[in-house]
């Protein structure tokens, strides 16, 4: 897939916000792909974490919003501890999630969950899920 890059496609503000929220220097990434290799959820992701970082470097905000990667992430920190460049990728994923969640959008609707599902789930499943996927 060719990617056109120009002043118009690069969302500088998006890059800055991800950097600010995550506290990470995303330009350190040299695209080795260790993150995806270490990620237990990568088999379930539409786009590998490595590509999300590249897209972030290029400020492709809308393109990232089309992917489910950060919503499939389980915040397990495998990428974080394995990154040879020392990027805390779990924080980058969180930053990308928050840019959506902070617009008062939910990726899981607590009120719509079937009662039976809520009854059987351990409390920590609900607490962690709502913290990571609701606004």
């Amino acid at each position: 897939m060719p990617i056109n890059i120009s002043d118009k496609t690069i969302k500088r503000e998006f890059i800055d916000k991800v950097a600010y929220l995550s506290g990470q220097d995303i330009y350190k990434c040299f695209q080795c792909g260790t993150c995806g290799g270490a990620c237990p959820m990568s088999g379930e992701m539409d786009v590998m974490p490595r590509r999300i970082v590249r897209m972030t470097q290029l400020g492709l905000e809308e393109a990232i919003a089309q992917t489910k990667t950060c919503w499939t992430c389980a915040s397990c920190h495998s990428c974080t501890v394995n990154c040879p460049r020392g990027i805390d990728l779990a924080r980058v994923m969180e930053a990308i999630r928050l840019l959506t969640l902070r617009k008062n959008e939910n990726m899981v609707e607590p009120s719509k969950l079937p009662g039976e599902t809520v009854k059987e789930m351990p409390q920590i499943a609900m607490v962690s899920c709502f913290r990571k996927l609701t606004s």
Partner: peptide, 15 residues
């Protein structure tokens, strides 16, 4: 308690 959890799942959004 699970009955209450099911009716008010937003309980788990408490911070």
């Amino acid at each position: 308690a699970e009955s209450v959890h099911a009716l008010y799942p937003e309980l788990f959004r408490c911070v």
